[in-house]
Design a protein around this nucleic acid. Structure first.
Length: 419
DNA sequence: GCCTGTTTATGCGAGT
DNA sequence: ACTCGCATAAACAGGC
């Protein structure tokens, strides 16, 4: 169904932003968005979060104060509660954003009611791809791994837009997770019963979003392994030499057709996951991750996986989530973080802007005026590094969406996934 | 039955 | 025109 197709398209005449490149279209005038009440066709009740009013509850609950500084919970990803706490993009900050829109309207009354166009922002489709969203969610999580549902929650918490039509985009999320090699599935450890596996970023997927721009990948992360899957005649995998190591990106790969979504390469995902899985004992030829006598939590497993691949020990130990997101907090040297290889700088569309400061700083509340400038009239001034990338300065430098929703500061226009 | 996960198919926009 | 990244829909299977 293409019904939603055009709703993201920039209205004619809205493009032509100076230097905007892909930023065609003005942030204003997003009336094409699902208007506030958003007649959601599905409105599937999401546990702990119902579209509309539920948002606030979620906030309240989520804002309980965990993730960022707190993290608090000893179990970074408590099967049940995690989705509502550690994952909150609000970083435990219960600051309401007037711009957060309709859903929080009742709480945002402290300030003047948001103007219609502002409100529409909150329901505008974020310029991030699903892959970006997933990546951000995973990165911001203390343990760097989340369940499917937690990813859903994170996205909905941060982007009101996704509180609607959940069936639709969640299907896409699942598809993205399965289809993209950059995501690996990490089986739950036996001591953490629950539904679904954990999802994590492939240790070598760090350069997907070059320059930290989470709008569109420069290149698709892909694993090269050709035929690990079917054990060749000999019944032996043909990929002896560590699958992960041979992962690359599509442009480097060269051969595989884009729409030939073959998935022999998926083996690498399995290999990577296997490395972190307790159910799948490590095999030397897959991923030579350190093989602890006893298997640690999935979170730790992933950490080890990462650590291994980057030859350093990740400081952000899952068991010490209090360290919160070292990566977003800038505590990690970019080159040391698997996800920071090529985009360490504070790109306006990077997760750094979306998450980190929002977690750790509140001192820089973004003034709505600034917001307006950025959102509607300011970003054109900075060509940024490419399509859909706002200029680094774009007044996000220090200020940030301390007020929770990313709409506060980063979002400019829903454009990238128009259809 | 619902959720999770995989896979296939199709179409669009952007970049070349 | 072609490639590529992506969105979306949908069929399907397995688990709880």
């Amino acid at each position: 169904m293409t019904t939603m197709g055009g709703y993201m398209s920039a209205p004619p005449g809205m493009s032509g932003l100076p230097g905007g490149g892909g930023m065609a279209g003005s942030p204003v005038n997003v009336s094409y968005m699902n208007p506030g009440g958003g007649v959601s066709h599905h409105h599937h009740a999401v546990p702990g979060m119902s579209p509309g009013t539920g948002a606030m509850h979620a906030m309240g609950a989520a804002a309980g104060g965990m993730m960022s500084a707190g993290g608090g919970s000893t179990s970074p990803l408590g099967a049940q509660s995690a989705s509502m706490n550690a994952l909150t993009p609000y970083g435990g900050v219960s600051v309401m954003s007037p711009v957060y829109g309709g859903h929080q309207a009742n709480l945002g009354r402290a300030r003047e009611p948001p103007k219609s166009y502002r409100r529409s922002y909150t329901h505008a489709k974020p310029p991030y791809s699903y892959i970006s969203l997933i990546t951000m969610a995973l990165q911001q999580s203390g343990s760097k791994m989340l369940t499917l549902n937690e990813i859903y929650q994170w996205i909905m918490d941060l982007f009101p837009f996704y509180r609607q039509n959940q069936q639709r985009w969640q299907n896409s999320i699942r598809h993205s997770l399965s289809f993209n090699d950059c995501f690996i599935k990490v089986p739950r450890s036996s001591d953490k019963p629950g539904k679904g596996s954990f999802w994590a970023l492939h240790p070598d997927s760090g350069n997907m979003f070059e320059n930290g721009c989470y709008l569109r990948r420069q290149k698709r992360f892909k694993c090269e392994i050709k035929v690990c899957k079917e054990p060749a005649a000999g019944g032996k995998p043909s990929c002896e030499a560590g699958a992960v190591a041979s992962c690359t990106d599509s442009r480097d790969a060269g051969t595989e057709s884009p729409h030939v979504h073959a998935s022999p390469v998926k083996e690498t995902k399995r290999a990577a996951a296997a490395a972190a899985s307790e159910s799948k004992p490590l095999r030397a030829h897959e991923v030579s991750t350190t093989s602890p006598a006893r298997h640690p939590s999935p979170a730790l497993q992933t950490q080890q996986l990462f650590a291994h691949h980057h030859h350093h020990h990740h400081p952000n130990h899952p068991h010490s989530v209090l360290v919160h997101d070292a990566h977003t907090a800038g505590q990690l040297k970019p080159e040391h973080h698997p996800l920071h290889h090529h985009y360490s700088f504070n790109h306006p569309f990077s997760i750094n802007n979306l998450m980190s400061e929002q977690q750790s700083h509140q001192q820089h509340r973004m003034d709505l005026r600034t917001y307006d400038q950025v959102m509607g009239y300011g970003y054109g001034s900075t060509a940024g590094s490419g399509a859909l990338c706002m200029g680094p300065k774009a007044s996000f430098d220090g200020s940030t969406p301390a007020d929770t929703s990313y709409y506060q500061g980063v979002y400019s226009r829903p454009v990238m996934n128009s259809t």
